[in-house]
Design a binder for these strands. Structure first.
Length: 557
RNA sequence: GCGCCUGUAGCUCAGCUGGAUAGAGCAACGGACUUCUAAUCCGUAGGUCGUAGGUUCGAAUCCUACCAGGCGUACCA
């Protein structure tokens, strides 16, 4: 419909030019869209601002141009009921009601496939997210990243991309050895052979739990081993325990990965070394002060960055270079990394590295998810894994449930900080917006059940007279359903999964409104049939969105 | 110091690829269950869109400066 109108408008503008009404360059594109302010008392169904856009070029008042365009506009019969000018020069089109009804047929035919797009054309996309170091359990901030990544992957898939979900395990480097040393210290304490706890070690209680398990499986056998060997064994043991816990937590949270990619494997395959050599040959690396530096300042970064320290150890950036090259070599055309916002200083250097590797930095999308700050009973809770003071994801899931937690994390944009008061979240659990949406779904199921009890089978759209859906509430609901594919498209383009939660809230709200004003099952058979078709379409779309969000759709509440 | 994010109703936030009278939820107040689920709905009230300039026919949206909060700014990850 938008396309039809845009074409007709373009012809009308040509006509005006030929008649000498105004002179402009033929516009590249003509935007026809639903009016942005839906609260208008008498909204046009579609609207264009083209006259306003052309006004300055034509040096004429926008309303005059709009009038000229409308006068020369030729549309097929039956599409548009009325065309009118509004405000400073908008042209509003009142779409013939019958057109909206088509959507109900479409939804019924496509069912769960409604809204599926072909934007990606099967292009391979990778979403890498969570990627928390296996040095401690997932906390609430990781939970937010997990949901954002998971839902983003879902919508990319629905938009026609071939999506892979990946978790990068930082199982190399200093942090891991610190984990091993912390575990060994706790282990020795348990066996009455205490040593001083490593400086900057991991002090969380969970390390003690791991040490206890290590005692259970290995007894006191580590006491006699050389320290280096004992540390390696502790590191392995602790890493496996923690990673197992992370995997279990994510599974419970409904977050699934296709691949768990180990940083260590990059070293084992000598990929880190090879990529550094490649960059050196390409002239992107230089030796200074005993260290190797990536000349990233030439590629958009603030300064050059060390990739290999003067003691010969590669930095985190070195393995990340190898990792990202590996991603490209696996065939991904678009790479999305989801990081905590505290890593934002890292974006420019990674993009610089990607350019140095000969890849297009535009293909790397880094999404920064602002951290979740926690408040418990009004007192801010610091979230430092080192200090061991943090609220784990699992604790929050125990308190508010998976559905509510997932929904909550998507109730604001990624780049907006999220303050979560745990006491408040608990209190709100009974009135959490997620229940509002689920309730709408359950209500529809209930209506359909009731109809079946009354001996009314769910009708098919083409067998009913859809024109009976003539109330404003009904048309508004259909328009909301029509909007879904465009909404999905916008979410994908902007990489903004939160738009789905806002959409589904609006859809649920319109349904609840309708439910109160009109009965679905009435005395009139034809009307009931038409309304059941409408309500079933809403049910289908609610389910599609809830599935994308990873939230359950209960048939009864 | 420099960089990134944020600042919209009492509170929590949408709206930000420029468009019409800036929206929603919560809280407040007043209403609605002989009716398909009241976890719902209807109504009232609530605003210098952080401040000041600029661009534009038009700015919450774009640009500049400033203010406030958060986060970065390692041969840590």
């Amino acid at each position: 419909m938008e396309q039809v109108l845009a074409t007709a408008l373009a012809e009308a503008i040509d006509n005006c030019q030929q008649m000498g009404l105004f002179r402009v360059k033929t516009p590249q594109k003509i935007v026809v869209q639903p009016p942005t302010d839906s609260k208008l008392k008498s909204p046009g169904d579609l609207s264009t601002n083209i006259a306003l856009v052309l006004a300055s070029q034509a040096k004429q008042p926008p309303r005059q141009i709009a009038q000229a365009i409308v006068d020369n506009l030729h549309l097929d019969d039956g599409l548009i009921d009325k065309v009118e000018l509004a405000g400073p020069g908008f042209i509003n089109f009142y779409v013939h009601q019958g057109w909206w009804y088509q959507t109900l047929l479409t939804i019924e035919a496509q069912k769960a496939q409604y809204g599926t797009l072909d934007m990606g054309r099967g292009e391979q996309v990778q979403v890498e997210f969570v990627s928390a170091n296996p040095t401690g359990p997932l906390h609430i901030g990781h939970g937010r990243g997990a949901v954002v990544g998971d839902v983003l992957a879902n919508i990319l898939q629905k938009a026609g991309y071939d999506v892979q979900r990946e978790y990068y395990i930082n199982d190399a480097g200093n942090q891991m050895s610190m984990l091993g040393r912390s575990t060994l210290a706790r282990y020795r304490q348990l066996l009455d052979h205490p040593v001083s706890f490593p400086e900057n070690g991991y002090q969380g209680e969970y390390i003690k739990d791991i040490a206890r398990q290590l005692v259970d499986t290995a007894g006191n056998s580590l006491l006699d081993k050389p320290e280096a060997e004992a540390i390696v064994q502790c590191t392995q043991f602790a890493k496996n325990q923690i990673l197992g816990g992370i995997k279990a937590d994510l599974k419970r949270f409904g977050v699934r990965f296709d691949q768990w990619f180990s940083e260590q494997s990059l070293y084992q395959q000598k990929l880190v070394e090879q990529n550094l050599e490649f960059l050196e040959h390409a002239g992107h690396i230089e030796k200074r002060e005993g260290a190797l530096w990536l000349k990233s300042s030439a590629l958009g970064d603030d300064k050059d960055r060390v990739v290999k320290r003067s003691n010969g150890e590669p930095t985190y950036l070195a393995s990340d270079i190898a990792y990202h090259q590996h991603k490209y070599q696996r065939g991904f055309k678009k790479i999305i990394d989801i990081w905590g916002a505290d890593h934002h200083g890292y974006v420019d250097r990674l993009k610089a590295a990607v350019s140095a590797l000969g890849q297009d930095p535009q293909s790397l999308n880094v999404l920064l998810v602002q951290l979740v700050s926690l408040v418990r009973e009004g007192v801010p809770v610091a979230m430092s894994t080192r200090q061991g003071e943090f609220i784990t994801l699992i604790e929050v899931l125990d308190e508010v449930g998976v559905d509510a937690a997932r929904f909550f994390f998507l109730t604001r944009r990624c780049d907006s900080q999220l303050e979560l008061d745990l006491e408040l979240a608990k209190k709100q659990s009974a009135e959490n917006p997620v229940f509002y949406v689920q309730y709408a779904y359950a209500r529809i199921c209930s209506v359909i059940r009731q109809a079946q009890q009354d001996g009314i089978a769910l009708p098919t759209a083409r067998d009913v007279d859809l024109k009976l859906l003539k109330h404003t509430d009904e048309i508004e609901l259909i328009k909301k359903l029509v909007e879904f594919p465009a909404l999905l498209r916008g979410s994908v383009l902007a990489l903004e999964p939160h738009r789905l939660t806002f959409y589904v809230l609006e859809l649920a709200s319109r349904f609840h409104k309708y439910y109160h004003r009109q009965r679905v099952i009435t005395e009139q058979e034809q009307e009931t049939a038409a309304r059941l078709v409408l309500v079933d379409s809403i049910k289908i779309v609610l389910k599609i969105v809830l599935d994308l969000l990873g939230i359950s759709a209960p048939e009864q509440m």
